[in-house]
Design a protein around this nucleic acid. Structure first.
Lengths: 388, 388
DNA sequence: TTTAGCAGTCTAAGTGTTTGAGTGCTAAAA
DNA sequence: TTTTAGCACTCAAACACTTAGACTGCTAAA
């Protein structure tokens, strides 16, 4: 009965041809030297990782021997597996179980695979379409990015916005609504628009609001958060002459609005996707992980900590993650570049037994795609006519 | 060992004095006649519901006999419980277990309790503060409402926006950004502001944009979705004279924006809260329920279906819900009124064994509080100075 | 160096037993 | 008539025990 578990995919060994030279050297400096592995060992290791990713259960020698790519007998495979285990690539949950990839095993798999998977044309089109369609204003990028990541990979999606300490308003606009109410519109670089409803304790005329527009555009455009000083406010007040009282509340709101950029932020979407994986069928463990999504600081730290400068996909497997509730999960993310600035990151969290091929490819494209969309107009709003 | 399970709260019987006359008649017309219940039966039933809500396990006669409110012996309690079971208020998971409230039992409890719980002062203040602070623009009301509901009750929060078929723009505003780019700002009644980035295939001057502002304000304010007709567009085009080409894309965006109001929408927050309840420790069941949150239509139907006209809290216990994956859960929600229009609903979903006292009180206040905030300016934006 | 065969290990599943919480019933007490 | 004490009964949960079978590692032959 148990042997049926892998029966569905007798050809589930990695599709590619003979393993080429590995992609670069291993990133995380454990000095992993995959030259130590014979071709046959590599083949077996990959087959094990593949099978385990697909079925989630330990992989035995008998099953492997049925793989057309592997030509030797179960006994030989057992010998090889014993050596792989000794070398740290495999683990055995218990004596009479098959083997499971260790974190080092996954790492080998990921490193040797990272540069040569390509998604299907359909997937690419779908993804690009979604990026174009959904992501047009910075405001919602995080939301949509995490949602896309979740829906395209079937793991929990995360999207991260770092601190952006020195934003400044490109242009102010005010709309008079009534005696005590008007609308304050701030345009930021990159197409972000923030709108605030202002309700005053005193009356203003449309003319005052018009002059306020001038004053703000003269004195407060290009001004970053910590450049809002008393002298500047006084200047604006002088400009407003008798209506100087309006400057103070407005500058306060401006300050608060700019402060919103100064916090890093993290969106998580598709937590429920994890429910389908038996790894998280232990409610306690699931709760721990989800608890971490709630106090997002930890995850933020985890992402910000791994600030290696390269632009590549980051894959942190199990205990490679600093946070210990993630020691049974994998975090994959990639930074989003806009020109040469990092404006965020997007990725997924899932079981160590993650479909790395797909995830890496998807997150790679997603991050690049978002970067492209966001960069489209660096000083002008991006987007086609179908915006919001 | 098992007797310890209720040991923590020997006084967990309902705090109130002798049960008063029940609040109104039972809503759902099964003709439940609680005059059939003696005072003692009521007391026992309440104690059972209370204990079960707190500890989540069947309640036995011995435990009840320790309740200072209940003066008779376990044997008598057993007799009473047997009768309550016969009358349908209690159920027995198996012969040698204690009793658990049936749905009818919960219903009795809810109906007899619904009018006389009051939250602590601290809770009320906290809730009001949060409503004031967080909810100022219609755009984010759903998000925040579901989040508040979840965080104040510790169950999954939901917030619902019905179709609003006949909204119209109060005022248009355009901001010129560059040769091909400008910003379209639409003010809707109730303080909702929608901003769209427009990127044109041709060039425009600031003057064109200014005239467009006039044209739109003349012809398209107060116009509902299905009133955008060709004749109206032609009129606006005539007004724009040589720059008439701009009218078509703008009116299309207007139409699309107004259509956004014409869909009902549902936000769910705090799904993970359910993890803490043993009722959902069965991953399969949890998955079913969460699956329903994903295809929100069902839940929308469930809420829209229960369209009884009263303004009271709606409590749907177990199979009272139309959707069958919810047959083990309770849905509590209340509609949000703005003046005399229903603008949404807010509520929670949790186990049948829900802390009804707290939930009912909280949702009641939350819905009213949101209604108040939203109503503040019916034709003007609401909110104090600290908006967004 | 590879392979077949075999003994050994260990989990998962199934079975039987025990424990105790809780009931319903009966007969005595109030 | 109502309440209570006592007792026999039931059943789920916990535990111990057995069995089946999926693997392995080892050995000796190919």
């Amino acid at each position: 009965m148990k042997s049926r578990r892998f029966g569905l995919s007798s050809g589930s060994c990695i599709a590619g041809s003979v393993a080429e030279v590995m992609a670069g050297t291993a990133e995380r400096g454990n000095g992993m030297d995959d030259d130590r592995l014979s071709e046959r060992k590599k083949k077996i290791l990959r087959a094990i990782v593949d099978a385990h990713i697909t079925y989630g259960e330990p992989v035995g020698s008998k099953y492997l021997s049925e793989d057309p790519q592997i030509t030797c007998s179960p006994a030989t495979i057992r010998n090889e597996m014993a050596e792989l285990e000794e070398m740290g690539y495999l683990e055995q949950p218990h004596t009479s179980a098959g083997r499971v990839p260790s974190e080092l095993g996954y790492r080998f798999y990921v490193d040797s695979l990272i540069e040569r998977y390509s998604a299907t044309k359909h997937e690419i089109d779908d993804l690009n379409l979604n990026i174009k369609f959904k992501l047009t204003e910075m405001d919602h990028i995080l939301d949509e990015a995490s949602r896309l990541a979740a829906s395209f990979t079937n793991y929990t999606g995360i999207a991260f916005k770092p601190k952006m300490p020195s934003v400044s308003v490109m242009k102010f606009e005010f709309v008079y609504l009534g005696e005590r109410d008007f609308l304050m519109i701030m345009l930021f670089p990159g197409g972000t628009v923030k709108t605030k409803n202002i309700h005053l304790g005193f009356r203003v005329t449309p003319e005052t609001v018009r002059r306020l527009t001038d004053a703000m555009n003269i004195y407060f455009t290009g001004v970053t958060e910590n450049m809002i000083t008393m002298p500047l406010i006084v200047k604006a007040e002088e400009y407003m002459e008798t209506e100087s009282a309006i400057v103070h509340p407005i500058s306060k709101i401006l300050y608060e609005t700019m402060k919103e950029f100064d916090n890093s932020d993290l969106k998580v979407d598709g937590v429920n996707k994890l429910l389908q994986y038996p790894e998280y069928s232990d409610i306690g463990r699931l709760r721990d992980l989800i608890g971490m999504f709630e106090q997002k600081d930890k995850l933020l730290d985890a992402i910000e900590a791994h600030d290696n400068s390269d632009d590549e996909i980051n894959v942190y497997i199990g205990s490679e993650n600093a946070v210990d509730v993630m020691s049974n999960s994998t975090l994959v993310f990639k930074k989003i570049r806009k020109g040469n600035r990092i404006v965020g990151a997007v990725g997924v969290i899932g079981p160590k037994r993650m479909d790395y091929k797909k995830v890496i490819s998807m997150i790679d494209r997603l991050a690049s795609g978002i970067g492209d969309v966001v960069s489209e107009g660096d000083s002008l709003p991006p987007g086609k006519n179908d915006t919001k």
